[in-house]
Write a protein that binds this DNA or RNA. Structure first.
Lengths: 133, 133
DNA sequence: CCCACAAATGTTACGTTATAACATGCCAAA
DNA sequence: TTTGGCATGTTATAACGTAACATTTGTGGG
C-alpha cells in the first residue's frame, strides 16, 4: 500500500533531518503545512514504524528514518553520537549466537529488541582531539 | 556513603515489586509515607542510579532494582517479559567482540549502552502452551 | 549554646511526551 | 446515491520529567 500524504510528510521531515526528531519537533516543522495536533504526528509515525520505515529511539524519545527491512539476518542496533546527534544503524548479525546461551538457559522467547549505543562518532572524536590543549 | 531515608524508601519499593515501576507508580505507593511530588522520587532515583542500584528501562519508562556493579566484564542487558512484567538482568560478556567489528570500522567510542529484550519468560510461555486449544 | 553553612527535603509550577475519545471529510463499492 | 470504511481533524487529558525556589535538618566553629 502507498503512504498517505501525512505519512509522506512526516517521513520526509525525518529524512531531511541529520538527527532524530521528537514527535513535537516534527509537529513544529509541519505546522506550516497545516498540522495542528500531536495525534496527527503519532498516527503517521505509528504506520511508518509498522512498515519499518522509521524507528523510535527509546533512549531519546525520538524518531529516525531507518533502513527498510533487509534480508540480512539479525537485529537492528543504533549507534547514537551524543555530540552531534548522528545516528548510525547497523545489524547485529546474530544476537542468538551471543545471547543464545543465556536465552536457552532461561527459555526466553524473544519478541523485539532495543539496542542503542551512546558515545561519540568518528568526526566528533577527532574534533575533541584537535581541540585538546 | 549511606542512603538517605527517601532513597531507602524508593529502593525498598522497587525491591518489593515483582515488576518495573514508573516514577509515578512509586510516588503513589509512597504517598502514604508523606511523599507528595514527583521531584522527590526522581531525585532518589537519580542517586540510586548513580550508585548502580536501580536501572531505568528506556523502553518502559520504568525503573527496576538491579544487581550491584559486578566485577564481571561486560555490558548490562535486560530481558523483559511482556506478559508478566518480570525482568531478568544479565551481562553481555563482551559487546566489543560482537559489535567490535562495526565499532572499529566506524570508530565509535562507546559511552553507555541500552540493551532491552522484549518477549516471554519461561513461565508465561508454558502457560500459553497449556491453555492452547 | 548559637550561628553559619551545607545537604537533604519539600513545594509549586511548568515543560515534554503520548493517547483517548469523538467529529468530520473523502472515496469507493453496492 | 447511499453506505461503510478509513484517513484526518480536533479537543482534552494522561503520563513522564525537570526547574526554581523555600524550608528543614544536622554538623562543625565561634
Amino acid at each position: 500500500m502507498q503512504l498517505t500524504t501525512n505519512q509522506q510528510r512526516v517521513l520526509a521531515t525525518l529524512q531531511q533531518s541529520s538527527r532524530p526528531l521528537s514527535a513535537y519537533k516534527i509537529l513544529e516543522r509541519l505546522k506550516s503545512e497545516g498540522f495542528k495536533a500531536p495525534t496527527q504526528i503519532y498516527r503517521a509515525l505509528g504506520c511508518l514504524a509498522e512498515r519499518g520505515l522509521v524507528h523510535r529511539l527509546e533512549s531519546l524519545n525520538a524518531y529516525v528514518r531507518c533502513a527498510p527491512p533487509s534480508t540480512e539476518q539479525g537485529v537492528r542496533a543504533f549507534a547514537i553520537c551524543d555530540s552531534c546527534g548522528h545516528v548510525d544503524e547497523f545489524i547485529v548479525p546474530s544476537l542468538n549466537r551471543y545471547l543464545g546461551t543465556w536465552m536457552k538457559q532461561n527459555v526466553f522467547s524473544l519478541g523485539s529488541s532495543t539496542i542503542e549505543l551512546h558515545g561519540k562518532c568518528a568526526t566528533c572524536s577527532k574534533l575533541d582531539r584537535t581541540s585538546d590543549s
